[in-house]
């Protein structure tokens, strides 16, 4: 499918139509972000009046000033970093050795252990038992609870295991003949060879940790421990029916809308920064790796 010059008239029309439709879809994907950015940079009055469409009206950084001096915002930002980094490392610490063991033919009961992982993807006890269990374990309202409680996910284990299974067994055997024990085989041979899969799993973990909201909301009461997403939610909910904001509308340069938009922008920026790296991995269709046994 190389050269459009070789296409017939009808084919060229078809291609242009496709590009047009894709362009429309892409713009409609992009637009809400631009819109939010524009609102965050407009005055509260203009935003409230519905005058912001594409670009900031009466450019101001008031909403950012309002949010950036808020200690709770920074606190939750820091918390999100703690949960994301701690949680991802914890996930890898469970998943890499576990998946390696599951991939070894010499493991007794291998089918059983694999089934034990797969079953959790087909059946889960649901919100209530999970919550009660968390409470019974004394993990409510703790950093450690959030970090360990969501460390493992069957899909990631199986993705990792499949990758290990695809590495020829002779690497393990060669390393064994060289005198390596299982930990050394894993650490010095299989982990370096599994870098793409580890990166993929790590990215899955990072994304889900960064965006994680529901359980953080349910399991954390202490506002000093909540992550950004929960802070965001509280703030959005609070602002939308806060009398103070309506009253100050004409004296302040910000409003509920502009502050909400500013928080949204602040929390998207890190995602946009790592997004190019994500792209590289997801484009390769690695995501398909977990979809077969």
């Amino acid at each position: 499918m190389a050269n459009m010059n070789l296409y017939s008239r009808g084919d060229r029309m078809f291609v242009w139509l496709n590009m047009f439709l894709i362009g429309v879809f892409a713009l409609s994907t992009l637009y809400p972000f631009i819109y939010i950015a524009a609102i965050s940079l407009s005055t509260g009055f203009e935003a409230r009046a519905g005058n912001v469409v594409l670009t900031p009206v009466e450019l101001t950084f008031a909403a950012y000033k309002y949010i950036l001096v808020e200690p709770a915002f920074w606190r939750s930002y820091l918390n999100t970093f703690i949960y994301t980094i701690g949680g991802t490392l914890m996930s890898l610490a469970f998943i890499i050795p576990g998946a390696y063991a599951l991939s070894r033919p010499q493991l007794y009961g291998r089918r059983f252990w694999n089934l034990m992982v797969a079953f959790t993807m087909w059946f889960n006890a649901g919100l209530i038992p999970f919550f009660l269990n968390f409470r019974d374990l004394g993990l409510l309202d703790s950093y450690f609870g959030i970090i360990i409680g969501f460390a493992v996910n069957g899909f990631n284990v199986i993705l990792m295991r499949n990758f290990f299974e695809g590495i020829p067994q002779s690497f393990e055997e060669a390393a064994r003949m060289d005198g390596a024990n299982d930990f050394q085989v894993l650490w010095k041979v299989y982990v370096p060879l599994a870098k793409p899969a580890i990166a993929t799993v790590a990215l899955f973990c990072i994304v889900s940790r960064w965006n994680g909201f529901f359980w953080a909301m349910v399991l954390l009461q202490d506002q000093d421990k909540v992550p950004l997403q929960v802070f965001l939610r509280h703030t959005i909910a609070k602002l939308s029916d806060d009398q103070e904001f309506s009253d100050t509308l004409f004296t302040q340069a910000y409003s509920a809308e502009t502050v909400t938009a500013a928080i949204i922008v602040c929390s998207i920026i890190p995602v946009l920064l790592v997004y190019p790296f994500l792209q590289k991995y997801f484009n390769k269709g690695i995501l398909l790796g977990g979809v077969k046994e």
Partner: peptide, 17 residues
């Protein structure tokens, strides 16, 4: 294997890439 003091050359070499 590691205590048998034998070395093996594999068909696919199994060189660590």
């Amino acid at each position: 294997p590691k205590d048998r003091d034998v070395a093996m050359v594999f068909q696919n070499y199994a060189l660590y890439p």
